[in-house]
Design a protein around this nucleic acid. Structure first.
Lengths: 126, 126
DNA sequence: GAAATTGTATAACCTCAATATATACAATTA
DNA sequence: TAATTGTATATATTGAGGTTATACAATTTC
């Protein structure tokens, strides 16, 4: 598996790993049921502590992308696209809620919010 | 001036002060041109370092609510409502932009975003 | 002009959460 | 049973955020 980590990126290593694997899964380059490299093997490849790869895998497990079994390994789960969409939706909801609350305090109408939303995201969306 | 600080609130002291003064200004209880208590006087009242009150006043100055002059004091500025609205608008813009970006990645349409916005903010807005 | 009062600037300290690690343990496989 | 895999607990390390101390500069007051 091809993972690249950068020390200068500012992004924590465990997130770099988790995000790259997420992308691989989303793009279909890692398929349902497929086994990931063991935490220790990947850690050795990347020359980092395997606790950091564990942290990355925990992140992926928490987000529903993989499942791990002691003694066996870690495997790609199904339903990723749907789960991912749900999560992003929740994130979006919290953003929109905060936008609404802020608008209310500042006397900005919901209508203006809609206009802003279009303005900021171009008219040519699907 | 009546400022209350709580150690258990989790919110930093300098923000507690700044936010309470913001509210006083927004409510018209502190009027344009009016002098605020000096940083040291307020600090003594609240039994904290005056660097913390300075931090609070810096926050207020940064946000356009007050102006400070060495040797003279700190004074409430005009135009607060307009400036406040502009700032909140910027904040909202960044939220909506992130929402749009997230939606794009997850294959969620702008139309759905609009629907969510209404759903989350009730129909009875002005 | 001197003393008092006001705000400014720089640096130091403290704390806490996040990150990364080491090491011992448990389950499965070969 | 030896090797491999994931788990759990504890321990640095680091960096940002918050608070403070102290020295400095401008204005006011007398």
């Amino acid at each position: 598996m091809n993972i690249n980590i950068s020390n200068s990126s500012g992004e924590p290593i465990y997130l770099q790993i988790a995000n790259q694997i997420k992308t691989l899964i989303m793009e279909g380059k890692l398929k349902e049921g497929e086994m990931l490299p063991s935490m220790r093997v990947l850690a050795t490849e990347l020359r980092i502590s395997f606790m950091t790869t564990k942290r990355a895998y925990e992140e992926l497990e928490r987000d529903g992308f993989i499942e791990s079994y002691t003694g066996k390994g870690s495997f790609v789960k199904a339903q990723n696209l749907e789960i991912y969409r749900e999560e992003q939706l929740k994130h979006i909801e919290s953003l929109l809620t905060e936008a609404g609350d802020t608008a209310r305090k500042a006397g900005i109408t919901i209508k203006e919010l809609h206009e802003l939303l279009d303005l900021l995201n171009g008219g040519d969306q699907t």
